[in-house]
Computed example of a mutant assay.
Amino acid sequence: MDELKHLGPRLRAMRKARGWTLEGLARRAGVSVSTVSRLESGKRQASLELLLPLTRQLGIRIDDLVRPEVPDPRVRRPTVQRGGMIITPLAPVGSPVHTFKISYPPVSTVPELQVHDGFEWLYVLTGRLRLLLGDQDLILTPGEAAEFDTRTPHAIFASGSRSAEVLSIFNGEGARIHTRTAEDE
């Protein structure tokens, strides 16, 4: 198990973060200094019998010492096109935060206002974005942000003759409505 190879260095880091010596931790946990030293250096195999008193004294869980490696953080999801929008996912599937870069094309007719469960936050990267929200007709330019409850009637599209690129963050309901593809339906 690869997780176990990091147990010793994590144990050492936790001990040092508290400013404790090998002797101090060993005394508190009721184990020998040699045992703590060998655990930290990887020269002794860890057992529950050894780890329980050490983790209790350090105020941590055993899971804190054997947590799995950090997975590759890169997001590799395909860009999709829907209704002229280009939608690039910026978070992995199953992420608690649904984040996308969306390119809104210019439109010839104003789209109908939508109402649905959800919440949205957006930030304009390039272009001019028109946000119809309830009785408001807003133009957002690069560097401007907006957040709103999607139960308010709304429509979002590029203003003018150029596309507008936006970073959008949705809760789960908002993401399903705004970013679904033909395969999802």
Rank of each mutant, 00 (worst) to 15 (best):
K5G: 03
K5P: 00
H6F: 12
L7M: 15
L7I: 07
L7A: 03
G8A: 05
G8L: 05
P9D: 04
P9V: 06
R10C: 08
A13I: 03
A13G: 06
R15Y: 06
K16L: 15
A17L: 07
A17K: 12
T21R: 06
L22T: 02
G24A: 15
L25K: 05
R27V: 07
G30V: 02
S32P: 02
V33G: 00
T35L: 14
R38V: 00
E40I: 04
E40G: 04
S41Y: 03
S41Q: 08
G42S: 02
K43N: 12
K43Q: 15
R44W: 00
R44G: 00
Q45P: 00
Q45F: 02
A46S: 13
L52H: 06
P53E: 01
P53M: 02
L54W: 03
L54Q: 04
T55C: 12
T55L: 04
R56D: 13
Q57D: 11
I60L: 10
I60P: 05
R61S: 15
I62C: 07
L65M: 12
V66Q: 06
E69N: 10
V70I: 10
P71F: 06
R74C: 00
R74L: 12
V75S: 02
R76L: 13
R76I: 12
R77E: 14
R77Q: 13
R77N: 05
P78N: 03
P78A: 11
P78D: 10
T79S: 09
R82S: 13
R82E: 13
G84T: 08
G84M: 06
M85P: 00
P89C: 09
L90M: 15
V93P: 11
G94L: 06
G94R: 10
P96C: 02
P96L: 07
H98D: 06
F100M: 00
K101N: 05
S103R: 15
P106R: 06
V107D: 02
P111Q: 06
P111W: 11
E112H: 07
V115I: 15
D117C: 00
E120Y: 03
E120S: 11
W121V: 14
Y123E: 12
V124C: 11
T126M: 02
G127K: 09
R128C: 06
L131T: 05
L133Q: 11
D135E: 15
D135W: 01
Q136C: 01
D137K: 09
D137A: 11
I139V: 15
I139D: 05
G143I: 09
G143V: 09
E144G: 02
A145K: 08
E147A: 14
E147Y: 09
F148E: 07
F148D: 01
R151D: 02
T152C: 08
P153Y: 05
H154S: 03
H154F: 09
I156V: 15
F157V: 07
F157Q: 07
F157E: 08
S159Q: 14
G160D: 12
S161C: 01
R162H: 10
L167N: 03
F170I: 05
N171Q: 07
N171H: 10
A175W: 08
A175Y: 12
R176C: 00
H178M: 13
H178G: 01
H178A: 15
T179L: 06
A182P: 04
E183H: 12
E183F: 08
E183C: 01
D184W: 10
D184P: 10
E185F: 12
